[in-house]
Amino acid sequence: MAPIRDKFTIHSKAVVCQDVELKGDITIGSGTIVHPKATIFAVAGPIVIGSGCIIEESTIIVNRRKEVMRIGDDNLFEIGCRVECPSIGNFNTISARARVHHTVRISSYCVIGAACLVVPTEDEILDEYTVIYGPAAERRIWSGRGKVQEADLRRKHADYLREMLPKFNRLRRGDGT
């Protein structure tokens, strides 16, 4: 296999801390926040992250497939989660220490609960508003109630971090600048 070529494209309005491990071809959209100690590995194919995402500490995002891994806008990856899905829509929450396998594609407005394992053997696409929770990774559909409030919280959270993180952490810039 050809060695991984590092190519980081980080939007000027994104906040990526210095203490982040990046490998491979990675594009980070505007307003996305990457906390220190997060890991993003584009092992085989590139990773494209949209705008307004929050990636917390010790999160691991890996792309082992050849195709492009696309992560949409305003997603929240909480502490210590591990995500390998080839595509993620918008406004999803992956809670602390959840693991999502490369066989799953996440649409939009999904919630993966804390410490849930989502490892189906066959490929599947999670419907919109799916909530996975509990020890046996049970599923149900969210009614969508409180969606506006949730979106508002996410937006304010991102705004806050964009303002505060640069005061205490050194930031990383893309190759272009």
């Binding site: 500490e57 010790s58 502490i79 210590g80 508002d152 919280l153 304010k156 959270h157 705004d159 806050y160």
Partner: peptide
């Protein structure tokens, strides 16, 4: 080892805060 301690956050009266 490997612990993460971070303060909680919420919005209160429309203001986001940790």
């Amino acid at each position: 080892e490997g612990c993460v301690m971070r303060p909680p956050y919420k919005t209160y009266r429309g203001n986001f805060n940790y």
